[in-house]
Amino acid sequence: MRGVLAAVVGAMLSVSGALMLAQGGAELEVLQIRPNFYMIAGAGANIAAQIGPNGVVLVNAGTAEASSQVVAAVKKLTNQPIRYIINTSADADVVGGNSALAKAGRKITSFAVGASRTTIVGTDADAASVLAHENILTRMRMTGSPFPSSLWPSETFEERRRTMYFNDEGIEIIHQPAAHTDADAIVFFRKSDVVVAGNLIDTDRFPVIDIARGGSLKGEIDALNRIIEMAIPPGPFVGLPNGSSTTTGLQGGTDVLPGHGRVYRQIDVVNYRDVLVIVGDIVQDMINRKMTLEQIKAADPAKPYTSRYGATSGSWTTSDFVEAVYKSLTTSTS
């Protein structure tokens, strides 16, 4: 019994055992998700870090301004080099640190060698690989793009699903067309049971559906449904007090790391998805009643959720969200 309790205590302490790093700029918080898996918050978009004997895989790079802090944070976690940086979208808070983090790492330049095939060949001159869907590179290369070529991915893929095996773990990178943008990817660490959702989810805002960059309401809902399918909720243990099988809560469950905000569980993604479905249904009903966009905005179709996800100022307001929903629905129906 006490052993079980100690395990629960240990797990909770490790999860809550955040490492605070403040080095002049923004304050980073490093949250341990699994024994070998961390989330670095406060550097722009959340950064996932999978750490193992083969090196470090980062998902997203944060902003350029915070990159030196991120490098320092990773070095506090391990002396292994950064090997891969996987981008989940072409947003500045996702790709801004690509160059600096890549330069702090080392690329795997050859196959494993030696009798045990455990030696990985690299050179100090190498930089880590930046892996992304082809649409991310396309967006970053567009005329007028704010991203210099030094931030571009070094390796892209066009297929819907790219897989790799690294640090004794299968990793899936799944392209989600027309969601937040047309260049989103979900990254699933199968053994760690962690899904990195990137900017498909912002736990404190309505999702940014960037119509101009190929996003859509339906694609965003599809992407969230995809995450819900991949994720498994925590499960109960059956037990009695003072018995050897007792537990004091649920165990396990997939962690979903959003682009911004706290770690989600599957039910959180369901709640977030439901917001989109319901607001979409309400706006569709208003469209069917021949209401104009301005009339719909005035009717406040997102009212049940504005106190949780809404904003009246900033880069993504409730009005922006409702307009994106409206445009998604009118474009698809036309």
Partner: peptide, 13 residues
């Protein structure tokens, strides 16, 4: 013990 970080997952308990 302190409460978890604001970034930590919320649990059913």
């Amino acid at each position: 013990r302190p409460h978890p970080s604001k970034y930590a997952a919320h649990e059913k308990s």
